Amino acid sequence: MDLFDSMRVFVRVVERGSFSAVARELNIGQPAVSKQVRALERYLGGPVFARSTRQLALTDQGQRFYHHCQEILGQLESATRSFASGQEQIAGPLRIAAPVSYGRLCIAPLIGSFLQRYPEVRIDLRLNDHNEDLLTENIDVAIRIGVLKNDGLVAVPLGSSVRRVYAAPAYLERYGQPRQPAELAGHNCIGFTLLTHYDNWQFSRGEQALEVAIKGNVTSNSSEAIREMVLGGLGLSLSPEWLFAADAAQGRVRSVLDDYQATALPVSAVFSPERRRSARTKAFVDFLREHL
């Protein structure tokens, strides 16, 4: 058994979800594909696929092995290209994690330009508002908004996320527009619970610093949901400019308290120290610093 060939076949079966599809892709018989996977399982000492299910599903060990195979085969491909060209190639799989709204509005639009510059990279963009474990989920680089915890990861600053207080015109017409932060206490304020102090909104004006304990009848851990509720006239939200930029331009929301500055949130790219050596990780982080 050629271990690398078996790993390649295994990865393609997982990605295509079918033994027969991989057989057609490789122009070999399906029994040959099955034989490669069985040989790999004998080598590993256990199953990679759960045979008891109707659909093709990985075992827990198979899932972990799949992620390792992706990384190993990517490194092998990079090493081969590096040997041929005399320098490390920016090629292979790149797994990126980002918050849902920020990933959709700020990261996804840049992917095309990045791939035009580095056409040999294969992007897997994973959007999740909860911080994923980079090692467990085999993430190359994650985009995080807010103050970072000291968790042993390498962090590269990308900039800051400016925030404003937004409301729909219908809400402001019904309840009035706050002129100073203290007036927020009389409004329905929607809190974003993934922030540590989501129920305290902080502002500054010159040398003056203000903190307001907000109240409201709804909170959410999804910025997408908060946007929809604000557009529906439910209340006020302290949100990043990028979340409401298009809505504000089209008059669907208005920013208030513009004479005051809300505390901005840092935006960072984080990755494990081991991934610092990856040329494609470094290239993507440098690309984000250039464009963000």
Rank of each mutant, 00 (worst) to 15 (best):
N128V: 09
G112R: 14
I111E: 04
F287K: 11
N200D: 07
A182N: 02
D2P: 06
I96M: 07
E241R: 12
Y43W: 06
V9S: 13
G233P: 10
R24M: 04
P99M: 13
V285L: 09
L231D: 12
L158I: 03
F49G: 01
E71N: 03
Y260M: 06
A91R: 02
H291S: 10
V212I: 15
A32G: 02
R252S: 11
V218N: 07
Q177K: 13
R174K: 13
R275V: 02
G186Q: 06
F4E: 13
F49Q: 00
A91K: 03
S18C: 06
P31R: 04
V33L: 02
G232C: 01
N150P: 06
R8Y: 03
G251F: 03
D258V: 10
T281I: 15
K282F: 02
G251S: 09
E290C: 10
H197P: 00
V14P: 09
A23H: 09
N150R: 11
H291N: 08
L231P: 11
S268A: 14
F10K: 12
Q261T: 13
E25F: 10
L110F: 02
A248Q: 06
R252L: 13
V267L: 08
S101V: 15
L238S: 14
F83A: 14
A98V: 10
L134F: 05
L257N: 07
G86V: 03
N221R: 08
I214P: 12
G29H: 09
W242F: 15
N217L: 02
I190Y: 04
S18E: 06
V218Y: 14
V13C: 09
A246Q: 11
W201K: 02
G216K: 11
Y43E: 12
M1Q: 08
S222F: 03
L135R: 12
V22L: 03
P99H: 05
G29C: 01
F271Y: 15
W201M: 01
L73H: 02
S82T: 12
I28P: 03
S239Y: 00
V230W: 00
L153T: 01
F49Y: 07
V156R: 15
L265N: 08
E211M: 14
L234E: 13
Y171K: 11
T263W: 03
D259A: 15
R12Y: 08
S278M: 05
L194G: 05
N217K: 10
S113D: 14
V9L: 06
L153A: 01
A213S: 14
Q63S: 11
V165A: 02
K35T: 10
Y166M: 14
A97W: 13
Q89W: 07
Q202I: 09
R164D: 00
P31S: 08
V256L: 11
L194A: 07
A167M: 06
R54I: 05
V156D: 07
N221M: 06
L44Y: 05
T263E: 15
T136E: 14
M7H: 07
S6D: 13
F4Y: 03
E88Y: 04
F203A: 09
R122M: 04
A249C: 03
L238N: 15
L26Q: 11
R38E: 04
Y66G: 05
P266T: 04
L58P: 05
G232L: 00
R24K: 12
R227P: 00
L288K: 06
L40Q: 04
E211Y: 01
F19N: 04
